[in-house]
């Protein structure tokens, strides 16, 4: 008899312990759907695409031999390496330039009073506008026959259409750069402005009491605290620019070979056999972004170790 009771008691105790444990983990359950979604679609999708690019059976039957990495081997040529350089270069340029201009703008906005509120609205306008239309808007004004060249003519700065610099479909990707800046500077401002506002209100008086000028406050207080977020924002811009299609497709000249455009071309126009090539190109982009990100994370850890010293 007493033995049975004991067992019951044990069961109850066990049950209770389980419930307590469950309760402490129940809060975590909420993550599961989103985590599974990302694991399945983002990581699983990437992995599946990777498999498609490696073990493409179409190609094996066509060549009669097993060359699993043919898509990657085909990419091993100077013209693709040049495309990589072009894509990474433009993405890095966009990220760094919009990072710097965005930071300066955010600081400027944060030091101004409520009278300048309308500026915020203007700087938030491009956020809601898709890249496709941003590209089109800038083509419309920066083209040689565009609105700015008409204004230049009106003011007598140029006499002929040809005198206006080639900014759209140009060789150097200036148009691409301008269009991305139009979109990404406001993004950086939106991202860091609230933090700068708070930092300034927290630290300005103290810094001033210690005798620092405003630029010293920015250099010694704001930038060191904000650096991880700021660099993170630039990484987002870099990764986005690296993989985005619309702007280079519309603004860049055909000689400006950016990888997303080439990859989509392969993907959409040359049928299934060429699909592994498109995937392989995108794999290269993802790997580059991952490498840059790992480098940034490593540098950040190192930076924390050295006591957050800025240059």
């Amino acid at each position: 008899m007493s033995n049975g009771l004991n067992e019951d008691g044990l069961k109850m105790w066990e049950k209770n312990r389980l419930r307590v444990q469950l309760n402490s983990y129940k809060g975590l359950l909420g993550i599961l759907p989103a985590l599974l979604f990302m694991l399945f679609f983002f990581i699983g999708g990437s992995f599946h695409a990777l498999c498609l690019s490696i073990g493409s059976s179409h190609q094996i039957s066509l060549l009669g031999e097993e060359d699993l990495l043919w898509a990657y081997k085909e990419l091993m040529n100077p013209s693709f390496f040049q495309s990589v350089a072009v894509s990474v270069g433009i993405a890095a340029a966009v990220a760094v330039l919009s990072g710097i201009i965005g930071l300066l703008t955010a600081i400027f906005l944060a030091t101004k009073s409520a009278r300048w509120k309308w500026l915020h609205i203007i700087f938030q306008l491009p956020i809601g506008i898709p890249h496709l239309l941003a590209a089109y808007l800038l083509i419309q004004v920066f083209m040689q026959s565009g609105w700015y060249s008409r204004i230049a003519y009106y003011f007598g700065w140029i006499d002929k259409l040809e005198e206006f610099p080639v900014l759209v479909h140009d060789e150097w990707g200036i148009g691409v750069l301008l269009a991305y800046m139009w979109k990404e500077v406001p993004f950086i401002v939106l991202l860091i402005y609230p933090f700068i506002l708070k930092l300034i209100s927290d630290w300005r008086d103290q810094a001033r009491a210690l005798g620092s000028t405003f630029s010293q406050t920015v250099r010694w207080v704001i930038i060191p605290i904000l650096l991880p977020m700021w660099v993170g924002g630039m990484w987002v811009v870099f990764a986005f620019t690296l993989g985005a299609y619309e702007i280079p497709a519309l603004i860049a000249s055909t000689s400006f070979r950016s990888i997303p455009v080439e990859a989509f071309h392969e993907y959409s126009q040359f049928g299934l056999e060429r699909q592994p090539i498109a995937i392989a190109m995108n794999v290269v982009l993802a790997v580059i972004s991952l490498l840059v990100g790992s480098l940034l994370i490593y540098m950040q850890m190192d930076w924390y170790k050295r006591g957050r010293r800025v240059w």
Partner: peptide, 24 residues
């Protein structure tokens, strides 16, 4: 790690996983 997986599409170009999803 969980957080970075959830935010990953911001930091890594996602075209490749969408191609995979399309095949799924």
């Amino acid at each position: 790690i969980v957080f970075s997986i959830l935010l990953a599409p911001l930091f890594i170009p996602y075209t490749i996983s969408i191609i995979g999803m399309h095949d799924f």
